[in-house]
Design a protein around this nucleic acid. Sequence first.
DNA 1: ATCATTTCTTGAACCAGTTCAATTTTTATG
DNA 2: CATAAAAATTGAACTGGTTCAAGAAATGAT
Lengths: 194, 194
Amino acid sequence: MFEAIDRYTETCISLTQEERSVFHSLLVHKSVPKKTVLLRAGDACDFEAFVVKGCARVFFINEAGKEVDLYFPVENWWISDLPSFTSGKPASLNIETIEACELIVISREAKAKLFAEVPKFERMFRLMLQRANEELMNRFISTVAMSAEERYKLFLKKYPELPNRVPQQLIAAYLGISAEFLSKIRSGKHKKED
Amino acid sequence: MFEAIDRYTETCISLTQEERSVFHSLLVHKSVPKKTVLLRAGDACDFEAFVVKGCARVFFINEAGKEVDLYFPVENWWISDLPSFTSGKPASLNIETIEACELIVISREAKAKLFAEVPKFERMFRLMLQRANEELMNRFISTVAMSAEERYKLFLKKYPELPNRVPQQLIAAYLGISAEFLSKIRSGKHKKED
DNA sequence: ATCATTTCTTGAACCAGTTCAATTTTTATG
DNA sequence: CATAAAAATTGAACTGGTTCAAGAAATGAT
């Protein structure tokens, strides 16, 4: 049940058998069907979850109603609205499953208890944040410094399997372009003919 | 000498007198003039620094030579290229002072020693990353979901003192627009007249 | 299988922001 | 304070991407 998350923790810290038991005792396994809303912006986010199986979307909706996808969590990614989870304030992000998902969920209280009982986990969550930060910075930089076509090619290279799991309109919302323009990029019709 | 950084640590963790001494013993105080290059992309980043006084820029240069400013660290911010600092790999970011700066610097070895001797600091650096992450996410979202004019107004609201410290062309590079267009936004000449 | 719904494609008109080049304003330096 | 250098402004032409509207293709429910 916890094999996948155990493999994940091993990439960050090493645990004794007892420490691992404490960890497991604080986790909850959860299966949800596709198109399930896990978090709605405005609600408080009361979980941090590890994706064992499946695919989801983490997205933002601006005042004009435009949706922007931040990332598509798949196997071995974590999902949460961390500022909200940490502070209890309303979330600014939405999270929804794209496929049926198998998740391992940790609550705010459980996470606090984990840090108190096995301080080593501070390190794991620090390293997780460090990875997330690097990822987000790369994403930011490519968004401002590359053309839509270059971003699309980079997306295909980095996540070759995602086009099979994520509808095209959501990929457009991830790239920060309209669904129509992505369609034109794919067919090559966005270039000036000469 | 370490008052500012001590005030900062207090917002994250509480330390005994001995712990604070260990911390101080691992820090180096450094003053640098303005326009000093602290890090050049391609070099390994061997420091993480706390800004006691002054203002700098952290920026990226893309293949076409276009510069994009990520943020303008001022008093009480941290600066580093963390992926490079952590792994020793070449940095992708550039860091340069805009004003003369007073910095408190910690080296890779010192940071490792700090974590080993006072594990509590894992928490502080985790919380720092959490803040940085929230900031970066907000920045990303506003970049893709708002117009250049809205982004500029938000920048003025969030950092009202920065226009006095940072040249306008760098603010344009922060907003992801050309210096010319920022000038037009400021004078209102970017709108269709009617 | 069939029909309804959703997703994807295509084209034409449009607009936010860029580029280039010239001018003005501000800042730094002897 | 003079003058050179750097930063900011302005206008005109242009381009990458949007919007809207209509049609084609794919998907799902019965």
